[in-house]
């Protein structure tokens, strides 16, 4: 099932050209050249501290590269039609429904349209019973689900997810994965990080492997999992410590 994502001009592909990021003289990410095509399901992998979160924040436009370029097809400095689910999402101190409404109001959607979208989102993510509950008092799994729902309600063309299920139990993880798969089916481009190899195998169409701030492999998932070229990636898949 493909749903047309709005009238907004397509923002993808996203081109990263020799992108790097340094802070305080320390280079944290460098030489990243990559094209993220529309409809992609890209999983970014790498050890702790490899630079995965940094990579997503750069792509999403929360920080700007200190080196190289990040270019959207729409030529916007920071494309609007994108959303991100953080490793530790921040929910506002208000009800679940109000959390969903917040980004829609920021987009300037009229009240009626917002109400309609919020209702549809609550429904779709099984949050109806929680609609009036304070978001901060939800369980970890429920909070993650709400963060995902909030991102979805923004109707992004591309969705960045930073370890969306790292703190969840297996069944909650499964729910999140199903949702991500559905988003992808709807035409939303997915860029996510994960430490869960099984999850990566289930969701990835493409894999980008980061090691010490460098992109050392970027290939279709099937090829990557069949046998990565880089020794570090092989060691990573084998579960050996690489640092």
């Amino acid at each position: 099932m493909k749903i047309a994502r709005d009238i907004a001009p397509p923002i993808l592909p996203l081109s990263l050209e020799d992108m790097g990021y340094a802070v305080g003289g320390k280079t944290l990410l460098s030489g990243i050249t990559l094209r993220i095509e529309a409809g992609q399901r890209l999983v970014v992998m790498g050890a702790n501290g490899a630079g995965k979160s940094l990579f997503l924040r750069l792509c999403h436009g929360l920080i700007d590269p200190t080196q190289g370029r990040r270019r959207w097809a729409s030529d916007e400095a920071r494309a609007e039609a994108q959303a991100m689910v953080f490793q530790r999402p921040v929910l506002l101190r208000r009800s679940v429904a109000a959390n969903l409404d917040y980004p829609l109001a920021l987009k300037g959607l009229p009240r009626a349209a917002r109400r309609e979208t919020v209702a549809r989102t609550l429904d779709r993510f099984g949050l109806n019973d929680l609609a009036e509950r304070p978001a901060r008092l939800l369980s970890g799994g429920e909070q993650q689900r709400l963060a995902l729902a909030r991102a979805w309600a923004m109707r992004p063309q591309v969705l960045f997810l930073d370890e969306p299920s790292s703190a969840l139990d297996p069944s909650a993880t499964r729910i999140i994965e199903e949702m991500v798969a559905q988003f992808s089916d709807e035409g939303i481009t997915i860029v996510m990080t994960t430490h869960d190899l099984g999850q990566a195998r289930r969701l990835a169409a493409q894999v980008a492997f980061l090691h010490r701030g460098r992109l050392i492999e970027h290939r279709p998932a099937a090829e990557f999992f069949a046998g990565p070229e880089a020794a570090e990636a092989r060691a990573f898949l084998a579960g050996d410590l690489i640092w």
Binding site: L62, F86, V90, P103, L106, R150, M154
Partner: peptide, 12 residues
């Protein structure tokens, strides 16, 4: 400090 990136991401 806690909200900055999340709010920016949501469009604020």
């Amino acid at each position: 400090a806690e909200y900055r990136e999340q709010l920016l991401s949501l469009g604020a």
